[in-house]
């Protein structure tokens, strides 16, 4: 069972009161983008074995979107953070690097 702390409510929310929103920090390709870029935006996902950044929504709670960093193999949760950012907080990235020595790092 996945349990994430909603950064807005400050409560530990069980997976069943959350809605998954897929990979985080995708760059939207809009009108005028190349077909290849648009296709990549729609379909290409990292799907990593290890550290992953995701979007989640506190669907049965405050209704807000937020971000989570977790490990898809160990299921360890590294942290959650605001939706209003385009990349993970530096402190969180540093903490993950310390915990996962082989991790290639953020982007």
């Amino acid at each position: 069972m996945l349990i994430l702390e909603c950064p807005y409510c400050g409560v530990m929310a069980d997976e069943t009161e959350l809605a998954a929103g897929g990979e985080a920090h995708l760059k939207r390709e809009g009108p005028g983008s190349s077909d290849a870029d648009f296709e990549a935006y729609l379909f290409d996902r990292m799907n990593p074995k290890g550290v992953h950044f995701e979007r989640w929504r506190h669907a049965s709670g405050c209704g807000k979107w937020f971000h989570a960093a977790r490990n898809t193999v160990t299921l360890e949760v590294y942290g959650t953070y605001s939706a209003q950012v385009s990349e993970p907080p530096k402190a969180l990235v540093t903490a993950i690097k310390r915990k996962v020595p082989g991790w290639e790092g953020w982007m």
Binding site: C9, A13, T16, E17, A59, S60, G61, C62
Partner: peptide, 8 residues
Amino acid sequence: RTRLAQVA
């Protein structure tokens, strides 16, 4: 705010 069985 949470859910009760299947509803918010």
